[in-house]
Design a protein around this nucleic acid. Sequence first.
DNA 1: GATAGTACATAGAATACTTATGCATAGGTA
DNA 2: TACCTATGCATAAGTATTCTATGTACTATC
Lengths: 116, 116
Amino acid sequence: MPLQDQIRKGSTEILILKLLAEEPMYGYQISHELQRRSGGYFEMKEGLLYPTLHRMAHDGLLKSEWREAGTARRRKYYAITEKGHRALSEQIKEWHTFIGNLLQVLDVPAGAKTPG
Amino acid sequence: MPLQDQIRKGSTEILILKLLAEEPMYGYQISHELQRRSGGYFEMKEGLLYPTLHRMAHDGLLKSEWREAGTARRRKYYAITEKGHRALSEQIKEWHTFIGNLLQVLDVPAGAKTPG
DNA sequence: GATAGTACATAGAATACTTATGCATAGGTA
DNA sequence: TACCTATGCATAAGTATTCTATGTACTATC
């Protein structure tokens, strides 16, 4: 995978991994928790969230289980796996590298150019 | 356009705008300059670069002109427009907001959760 | 004359994301 | 009763970005 690698996937995967690294959550909860923590900035639509969760589970980053909740609807809880933890560390590193390089190109003053 | 807006476009557009805000460049030069400044990190492939330049010119962010260069091949120089300058400022703001929100969710410790 | 570098360009495939829709349960209200 | 909203999971179709591959053409070098 070339160029910005994980970055192309947007922030979706890393945000999900981060939340689930704290505790297992179900889809609807992930969506709301993300909005809450970002002051409404991150709005993960269902059409993106659920397919992504499925893919990540298929890739072994997450595992899922249904839980009954008394009166409420049943919920599908997702938990992070060992592989998911490693992917999270890796993606955090990659994001920091990406952000570092981006800011470098954006903020380096024009006078810093080398001849050539 | 919802969610991360410009961010979905990746870093392509903002990086091009930033370089051209310094001086007009031609495609091949943009590609190499980008690699140089990022220590090889940003590799903008031709299949992405040229269509993006065309789109941005079509959108009025850039304007282009052919220049003959003596013995060498003719080159198509791109320059940033007023609209391009405004887009650059806007996208820099949006990227900072995005990065801020991303880092907030990634770095806030689990203990910082609010009840409810 | 074969290879590599410069320089622009497009076609087709892969993938992420959006929009729209569907099913199902529960609670409020008019 | 009927309607709306919220919860909760899911998929299909469309859009946009990016990747891979390829083509053309000129120059320099071995």
